[in-house]
Computed example of a mutant assay.
Amino acid sequence: MQHHPPGHITQKRRASSLLFGFRRSGPVAHLAVRLHGDIDAVSAEEVGRLLDEALRGGPAALDVDLSEVEHISTDGIVPLFSALKKARLRGTHMMVVGASRHVWAALHRVGFDRALAHQQGDGS
């Protein structure tokens, strides 16, 4: 059994082939969401709800970990765009981490990488 520091919350749920969870550390300064499996039309709504829930607490930073995402479709990218927009409005710095080359290529095809870079002040 893992031991976690006070204020640490791990939540895991399963929606079809998608397994995801998030951790809260302390007073929600930094939140990490880890997604697993396929993110597509079937799982997009649930991913959107999870990201909305993660942003609800107003973290200063939100990391979306895609290291265990095997496939992401255009429909699956929609909740990431939505979360990025909401993060901007709330002043939350959102990062996508751990994406495989295949997943990153899908994000690039729809311009998500450029939107993310613009949010970080690296784009024009």
Rank of each mutant, 00 (worst) to 15 (best):
M1I: 09
M1W: 01
M1C: 13
H3A: 13
H4S: 05
H4A: 07
H4L: 08
P5W: 09
H8C: 04
H8Y: 11
H8N: 03
I9Q: 12
K12R: 14
K12S: 14
R13K: 01
R14L: 15
A15Q: 00
S17W: 08
L19P: 00
L19F: 08
F20A: 00
F20L: 08
G21D: 14
G21T: 09
F22H: 13
F22W: 15
R23E: 15
R24W: 00
G26T: 01
V28A: 15
V28P: 01
A29C: 11
A29W: 03
H30A: 12
H30Y: 14
L31K: 13
L31C: 14
L31S: 10
L31G: 03
A32D: 11
A32W: 00
V33A: 10
V33F: 11
R34P: 08
R34S: 15
R34I: 15
L35H: 03
G37T: 02
G37R: 02
G37D: 07
G37M: 07
D38W: 01
D38K: 01
I39T: 06
I39R: 06
A41V: 13
A41M: 14
A41W: 00
V42F: 12
V42S: 10
A44I: 04
A44D: 02
E46W: 12
V47A: 14
L51C: 05
E53G: 14
A54R: 06
L55K: 00
R56C: 00
G57E: 12
G58V: 11
G58D: 13
G58T: 07
P59Y: 04
A60Q: 11
D63F: 06
D63S: 10
D63K: 07
V64D: 02
D65P: 09
D65G: 09
L66G: 06
S67P: 07
S67A: 13
S67H: 12
E68S: 09
E68D: 12
V69K: 01
V69C: 08
E70C: 01
E70V: 10
H71Q: 13
I72L: 07
S73M: 01
S73H: 05
S73L: 02
S73Q: 02
S73C: 07
D75Y: 04
G76S: 07
I77F: 04
I77V: 13
V78H: 06
V78N: 05
L80I: 05
S82Q: 14
A83E: 08
A83I: 02
L84N: 06
L84I: 03
L84R: 09
L84Y: 09
K85F: 10
K85N: 06
K85Y: 00
K86I: 05
K86G: 08
A87F: 02
R88L: 10
R88F: 00
G91T: 06
G91E: 07
T92K: 04
M95I: 00
M95H: 12
M95R: 14
V96P: 02
S100T: 06
R101W: 06
R101N: 10
H102S: 11
V103Y: 01
W104I: 00
A105S: 09
A105L: 11
A106G: 01
L107G: 05
H108R: 13
H108T: 10
R109G: 03
V110K: 07
G111V: 12
G111A: 12
G111Y: 14
F112V: 04
D113W: 05
D113N: 12
R114H: 08
A115D: 06
A115C: 11
H118S: 13
Q119V: 04
Q119S: 12
G121H: 03
